[in-house]
Amino acid sequence: MNWFDYNTQVVAAATALLGAAAGLAGCLLLLRRRALMGDALGHATLPGIAAAYLVSVAVGGTGKEPWVLLAGAAAGAIAGVLGVVLVRRGARVSDETAMAIVLGAFFGLGTALLTVIQASPGGHQAGLSSFILGHAASMVASDLRAASIVALVCVALVVLLTKELRLLCFDESFARVIGRPVRWLDATVLIIVTAVVIAGLQAVGLILILSLLILPATAARLCTDRFTVMLPLAAAFGAISGVGGTLVSSFAPRLPTGPCIVLVAATLFVLALLFAPKRGLFAQAAMGRAGGYRP
């Protein structure tokens, strides 16, 4: 495979759009201090996918229609979000504990269903387990279309709601006091994240989607203190990771695309950590001599 190849171009375009959308969604998660929500959501899609396959086969379908599986993934992710909220309230545990609980229980259920499916006739060819680690190389034009629609919707939502989301991220109680619909905004953030997770299942899989959500956003956070700069910066980092990872994996025959995208994103993060103005390690060391940086 080389990068002039039509297939590589399709994959690069799809992962770039996905990376941009994930960068935007990640900023919201990061600033809401819920970075690991992406992990709980990602793992929670698995039982949804498996259940959608079982239902589709039961009603006479093939179980391979992509939209059926993605609808199942969405249902699983939404159930996961509700699970986090209900467990946090019902068991009175911290956000993080509720996420770990949902992640463990949902993924366990998913693997149990998956083993049953893979033992059933035709189940092994359904390729459900490819959602776990992703299979970007086999993305086709229709996947590109789906990814770009999701990415555009996410971008549009974030741009339209920038002011409200900024208020939500930085001063939730003030937003509530001046009458902003905080609950709905919170739900919107989670819907955007869910959409990105589902769009990213095929490219990077449900485990690595977490890194696509938080690496570009954290890198952007290191580079700037302004929300309106952080958003486009994170989107750009995400897009660069998508294209870069796809190209890197297309040069060598045995580099899986998803992990390559993550490693490019991680490289960008390390560069930001070292060289960012003000918050970067070099800048901090320089300012340390001049009296120190107080964030």
Binding site: G38, L208, L210, S211, I214, T218, G258
Partner: peptide, 12 residues
């Protein structure tokens, strides 16, 4: 999240 997903990608 950054450390463990990056390590997982490397591991894959």
């Amino acid at each position: 999240g950054i450390v463990f997903t990056t390590m997982f990608a490397l591991g894959l």
